[in-house]
Every structure is written in structure tokens, then in C-alpha cells.
């Protein structure tokens, strides 16, 4: 356990010293900022996205629109950027042999890296929540929100629901991070792992819209990015939320198990 924490702490320090970290955070904050300024400039919200119509009525709608938006490529990208890099870049730079010849076993090293990748995705998600809420407050102010069921939700309760939605949204992000880690342990360079993670998330989204494959749609990782809708119905619809939790748990467990097995057993022949 202390080994995992040691690795985790140093992985965070390394993230803070790398440019790529800030590129992901820039995406997470710039995109809501651009969205808000575009809406304000054109005085018109997107019509075909849940809550899109309400962005000019309540700032609370802005983070919710961005959740939908972020599911397609933004969060898969930000997550993959670090999760896909975190092992592969060490392989590529030859530092894997440096850290694997010390006193820590491979499993805690993998665990520390996995924790760091998840922490990073969480920070990016919080950054997006903060910027989109602030942007929403600036252009529309915090006003009661119209839920997906057509009922009105007070501002205070709306904020709680937004918090809950972001938390549930974080679960499939963990799944993407776990998949990124697997690719990262298999690939020998980080670009390959990042692209593979993104491609997989696109393929899952593609499978969801292919005719005849509707039956597996509820079990796709990327579909769980919409489970938070359950919070914005009255009464709260827990079914998609609990479903997302166990579907994601399976994706995460399977990916992490595969990742740790590969990492513990693999030859470190490079560098």
C-alpha cells in the first residue's frame, strides 16, 4: 500500500512537470469558455442537445450541455492523453527499466500510475464543471432549471443534481482511463496508446448506432456517459444510474486486470 502511495505521489509530481498535462486541462477549460462565449455572442443556444434550449434562461444548463458534448470525444481525449501515456512513455523513454530495478514490485507501480491517471481525469472534469458553471452564471445567471420531465428544479437543488451528474459521469471516464492504461502497457509509444484508446471509444459509439446491434447498446461503456439523465427526471430515475455503475465496474475491473497482468509479466527489453 505504501508503495502504491509513493508511486502515486511521484506520478502526480511528474504530471505537474509535463506539458501534456496542461494541454488536457486547457481543453477542459477552453471548450466550455468557447461554448459560453459563442452562445452569448449569437444569443442562441443549441436546440438539439438536452438542456441546449435553456442555456440562456439558466446558467445551470451550461454544464449539462457540456456533459453531453464531452461524451463524444472531449473526455475520452483528455482521459486518454494521460492514461495512454503513463506507461507507454516510460517504455519509450527507457525509464521503465530505471524504476523497475528498485525496491518496488510491479503491481504497486501499476496501481500508483492508475490512481494518478484517474486523479488527472477527475481534476479535468472538475475544471470543466467550474468553468462551465462560472460561464453559465455570467451569461444567464443562476435560475431555476427545467428538468427532462418538464418540471422546474430550484437553483439550489439544481446545483446538487449537477454535482451528482458529474460524479456519475466520472464512472465511465474511469472506464476509459482503465482502457487507456491497458493500451499504454501494450503499446511501445504513447501516441499509439492514446490513439487506440480514442479509436476504441469511437468504435463503441459507432456500434451503438449500427442497425441490428441495439441489443448490446446498453452494455457499451460509452453509453454510460448518459446515465446522469436519470438525476434530471422527477422523480429521480435510478435505473440508468445503477445500470451504468455495474456496467462500468465490469469494464474497469476487466481492463485493470488485463493491464496489471500484462504489466507484471511483460519483458522490459527497450531503453
Amino acid at each position: 500500500m505504501s508503495g502504491t502511495l509513493t508511486v502515486y505521489r511521484w506520478e502526480l509530481r511528474k504530471l505537474l512537470s509535463q506539458k501534456r498535462t496542461y494541454i488536457g486541462l486547457l481543453f477542459a477549460t477552453a471548450i466550455p469558455a468557447i461554448f459560453v462565449s459563442t452562445v452569448a455572442a449569437r444569443n442562441h443556444g443549441p436546440q438539439d442537445v438536452p438542456f441546449g434550449r435553456y442555456v440562456l434562461e439558466s446558467g445551470l444548463a451550461v454544464p449539462l450541455v457540456l456533459l453531453t458534448f464531452g461524451a463524444y470525444w472531449l473526455f475520452p481525449l483528455i482521459t486518454a492523453l494521460v492514461a495512454g501515456d503513463i506507461v507507454a512513455s516510460e517504455d519509450h523513454n527507457g525509464t521503465l527499466k530505471t524504476i523497475l530495478t528498485r525496491s518496488l514490485d510491479r503491481a504497486p507501480i501499476f496501481a500508483g500510475k492508475a490512481l494518478a491517471a484517474c486523479t488527472y481525469a477527475f481534476v479535468a472534469l472538475v475544471a470543466m464543471a467550474v468553468v462551465s458553471l462560472a460561464g453559465g452564471a455570467i451569461i444567464s445567471g443562476f435560475h431555476p432549471l427545467v428538468s427532462l420531465s418538464g418540471t422546474t428544479v430550484s437553483t439550489g437543488h439544481g446545483l446538487v443534481l449537477i454535482g451528482a451528474s458529474f460524479l456519475v459521469y466520472f464512472v465511465p471516464i474511469l472506464g476509459i482511463a482503465a482502457i487507456g492504461l491497458v493500451f499504454s502497457t501494450i503499446a511501445r509509444n504513447s501516441a499509439g496508446a492514446v490513439v487506440a484508446t480514442l479509436m476504441l471509444s469511437f468504435v463503441l459509439q459507432l456500434v451503438a448506432i449500427l442497425p441490428g446491434l441495439g441489443g448490446i447498446k446498453p452494455y457499451l461503456l460509452t453509453n454510460q456517459f448518459f446515465a446522469w439523465h436519470g438525476f434530471l427526471r422527477t422523480p429521480t430515475d435510478w435505473a440508468p444510474i445503477t445500470h451504468a455503475l455495474w456496467v462500468c465496474a465490469i469494464w474497469i475491473a476487466a481492463s485493470l486486470a488485463a493491464g496489471v497482468v500484462v504489466f507484471v509479466r511483460r519483458d522490459v527489453a527497450g531503453g
Binding site: 509513493t6 508511486v7 505521489r9 511521484w10 509530481r13 511528474k14 512537470s17 509535463q18 523513454n93 527507457g94 525509464t95 527499466k97 530505471t98 524504476i99 530495478t101 528498485r102 525496491s103 518496488l104 531503453g271
Partner: peptide
Amino acid sequence: FVEEPRFYPYLSARKNLELLAAY
């Protein structure tokens, strides 16, 4: 070490050694 020793290029030598010492 085998072949060239490798370190994190974006950290100072001391930081690299601190990391290794922690490990």
C-alpha cells in the same frame, strides 16, 4: 543498469534521484 541509464528528462538530476530514493 543495462545499456544507457535513463532518467526523466523534464526533472532535475536531484529530483530524479529523489524519486529513485523514494522507490
